[in-house]
């Protein structure tokens, strides 16, 4: 087993363990913290896939923004977060079954695919992926329109979130 594999396995176990805790733990703040651990594991995965840019924006966006926003929302709805009773709904066994079935189906489908065992290719020499990504995102031959649409979407979401959550003074 190479060092790379060892790192992968450790990170995968931590991430998946964290994810399981996210969906099972009762205390929502704890769930959010487990989510952060899990997302951090995913960030490391990006690092393993030689996408350092994604590692960093994963931390910035998911941990720095999304997770903290969630913790805020949990605290703002605190009464609900501490409600007694089950933390899962009545159909949880069906949900679990479906997830399991989906997992088996996905793995089975992957395993029948010829590219399943693709080994890690060498990255092209002398290419700065961040530079390439940046150029692709803003060049007309690349993804400038999707990128702009995504930014408009973000702006719209921003305004929409403010409008929706605005407490109207009656």
């Amino acid at each position: 087993m190479t060092v790379f594999q060892a790192i992968f396995l450790v990170v995968a176990v931590v991430t998946l363990g964290g994810a399981v805790m996210v969906v099972t733990v009762r205390n929502l703040i704890h769930a959010a913290l487990w989510l952060i651990l899990s997302l951090f594991g995913v960030a490391v995965m990006y690092g393993l896939l030689s996408a350092p840019f994604f590692t960093v924006i994963q931390v910035v966006i998911y941990i720095g923004a999304i997770a903290i926003l969630m913790i805020f929302a949990i605290m703002l709805t605190r009464r609900v977060a501490q409600e007694p009773g089950s933390s899962v709904n009545k159909g949880w066994w069906m949900a679990g079954l479906m997830s399991l079935v989906l997992f088996t189906a996905l793995v089975w489908m992957f395993s029948t695919w010829s590219g399943f065992q693709t080994t890690l290719p060498q990255l092209p020499e002398g290419i700065d992926t961040i530079k390439v990504l940046g150029t692709a995102l803003v060049s007309p031959d690349g993804y400038v329109i999707p990128f702009e649409i995504a930014s408009v979407l973000l702006l719209a979401a921003l305004i929409g979130a403010v409008v929706v959550a605005w407490e109207r003074k009656t």
Partner: peptide, 10 residues
Amino acid sequence: CIGLYGVLAR
């Protein structure tokens, strides 16, 4: 799938 379970069951 873990995320899916969370979505469906929580």
